Amino acid sequence: MKTITVELGARTYPIHIEAGLLGRAGEFIAPLAKGRRIAIVTDANLATHLATLQASLSAAGLESEAIVLAPGEGSKSWATLEMLCDRLLELGIERGDNVVALGGGVIGDLVGFACAILKRGCQFVQIPTSLLAQVDSSVGGKTAINTRAGKNLIGAFHQPAMVLIDPKVLDTLPIRELRAGYAEVVKYGLIDDLAFFEWCEANGAALLAGDLGLREYAIAHSVSAKARIVAADEHETNGTRALLNLGHTFGHALEAETGFSQALIHGEGVAAGCSLAFGFSAAQGLCSDEDAQRVAAHWRDAGLPDGLAAAGVDASGARLVDHMRHDKKMAAGTLPFLLARGIGGTYLDKTVDLTDVAAFLDAQAR
């Protein structure tokens, strides 16, 4: 087993990574549960994993109650949040209890936010079942729901008590979801780790094809990188954690344009967004065209969109920039961008003119 620690003082917590860990989850949750019944929140697509988890909890002497939600981004809503909070209160959840989030990023985000506000804060355990959630959203404590104004605009920082990652559960993940999660893996190389990006170029195809050893390595490497960044800047106040948003400003605009729907799922938006961030950086003379083309080529090799057309987006630069104006990172009319001086050379730029961004996007559409 690989264990990585997120160092946050009194709120420090472990991330355990091991193939088959879901079947042993009860051993790790029992010391936190203190004999109390466990509430599990999951979605309707994860019945097999839910059965495995409940059997594990039962073997550890714990009773459990499952709350099964509809799958998909639509569950990150006010209505579902209200229903979930009401149901957890009906179950008698106390501040010292741990709710288990069994699912991908949608479940993790929703459950984390519910636990952040329920009785002014109760605890939760993340058991991510998608690659994207395993390498990104389950770690770091960002929780949120979506609104008509945009994605993840209502939320809170609320760290989990523990994260349990079982790479074997990815065997049941649809290939599209696996590729979307892989975009977040590659992102760590693009941020500040050229050697890891090169590792992805050499091993990405085999990882996506099912090599368990490569998946475990990629997950552990990604989680270690995120844990280090979160420990240095938990609430995104000094600019370090902002680096994790590489590709997201462009990507969220593409997701907004497609209605936050299955037309373009989050990891696909991140891949296309990273390509656009590198393309814009090259257009501004910050990095070479070769680097931008190399990033785009890797997305194509992985079956991910490398820009506007591949993402299925046909919109003016002005319209996409208008989506960006709703970004939660907007401050005093300025939107910071993650740009790159090369692969592994990402930095935060607060001087970008949105008019230049719109012109760049219009050029990409031609």
Rank of each mutant, 00 (worst) to 15 (best):
T3Q: 15
I4T: 11
T5K: 10
T5H: 09
G9A: 09
A10F: 00
A10S: 07
Y13R: 08
P14R: 14
A19Y: 03
L22W: 11
G23A: 11
G26P: 11
E27Y: 01
E27H: 03
A33I: 00
A39G: 07
D43A: 04
D43I: 01
A47R: 14
Q54I: 05
S56T: 02
S58Q: 14
I67D: 05
S75G: 15
T80Q: 14
L81M: 13
D86N: 14
L88R: 00
D97A: 10
V100I: 12
A101F: 10
A101W: 10
L102W: 04
G108M: 07
L110Y: 09
A116F: 04
A116L: 01
A116R: 01
K119C: 08
R120Y: 05
C122T: 04
V125Y: 13
V125Q: 09
V125K: 10
L132G: 11
G140K: 09
K142I: 03
T143C: 14
T143D: 05
T143A: 11
I145E: 10
N146L: 05
N152W: 04
G155Q: 10
H158V: 01
H158E: 03
L164D: 12
I165C: 07
I165L: 08
P167E: 13
D171L: 11
T172K: 01
G181H: 01
V185G: 08
V186Q: 12
V186G: 13
K187A: 00
G189S: 06
D193T: 11
W199M: 00
C200D: 05
N203A: 07
A205T: 15
L207K: 07
E216S: 05
Y217N: 09
I219S: 12
A220K: 01
A220V: 12
S222G: 04
A225D: 05
I229E: 11
G239K: 12
R241Y: 14
L244K: 06
N245G: 05
L246P: 10
T249Y: 06
G251Y: 05
H252E: 04
E255F: 01
T258F: 09
S261W: 13
S261D: 15
S261V: 12
L264Q: 03
I265M: 05
G273D: 14
S275L: 05
A283G: 08
G285W: 11
G285D: 13
L286T: 08
C287M: 08
E290Q: 00
Q293K: 05
R294Y: 09
L304S: 08
G307A: 00
G307I: 02
L308H: 03
G312T: 06
R319C: 02
R319K: 03
H323C: 03
M324A: 03
H326N: 11
K328F: 07
K329D: 05
P336T: 04
L338E: 01
R341V: 04
I343H: 07
G344L: 04
G344H: 08
D349A: 06
T351W: 03
T351L: 04
V352F: 02
D353I: 00
L354Y: 09
D356G: 07
D356L: 13
A358W: 02
A359V: 15
A359L: 15
L361H: 00
D362R: 08
R366L: 15
R366N: 14
